Simulated scan of single mutants.
Amino acid sequence: MSKAPRVGCGVVLLKDGAILLIQRLRQPEAGSWSLPGGKVDWGEPTPVAAAREVAEELGVVAQDLKLLCVVDLIDQGDGDHWISPVYLADSFTGEPALMEPHKHAAFGWFPLGDLPAPLASSAAVAAQALKTGS
């Protein structure tokens, strides 16, 4: 059986020097603090998927999305391979709320120098990209 990578997406929301992270209840990386985001649907451009996922998960509208980095999450044990473009939202409207409590345990704002553990790989790569500007 041939396996193919799946496509996901993530969004970095910043406020007063802090990044918004959500704690995942489901695999991949259950229990980790991650970026809001999710699966890209067939025919859906990744920036559109990223904005949709943020609205579904947190009830906010992400605006002016710009590509920050691309994350490869390869878990040989589970047989998963996700490719996830991560976007930086220049702004957002609305007040974040936990819209999918069956998928996420919590959310919070964290300073880039004091991120929670365990940290999902997408959040770690995005935080490094923010710190280095690449």
Rank of each mutant, 00 (worst) to 15 (best):
L112D: 10
I74M: 04
P85W: 02
L20N: 02
D75A: 12
M99F: 08
L35T: 03
I19V: 11
L20C: 07
D114I: 01
Q128P: 00
A117H: 15
A97Q: 05
G38L: 08
G113T: 06
W42N: 07
A55Q: 11
G79H: 06
V48H: 08
G8M: 01
Y87K: 00
F107W: 12
W82C: 06
A18F: 00
K3T: 10
P118S: 11
W42I: 08
D41E: 09
P45L: 09
A49G: 11
P96S: 14
A49S: 15
D75C: 14
G133Y: 10
R52S: 08
K131T: 09
Y87P: 00
G31Y: 13
G79Y: 05
P85F: 04
G10F: 01
A49E: 07
L115E: 07
L58D: 07
G79A: 06
A50C: 11
Q27I: 03
V7T: 09
E29C: 03
V54F: 09
K39S: 08
L25C: 09
L21N: 08
P36W: 05
Q128K: 13
E95A: 12
V12C: 15
H102P: 02
K15L: 12
A51W: 03
L115C: 05
S84F: 00
P96G: 11
A124Y: 01
I19Q: 00
A62Q: 02
F110R: 10
A120F: 02
G94V: 13
K3H: 07
A97I: 00
S32L: 00
A127I: 13
L88G: 00
A55G: 03
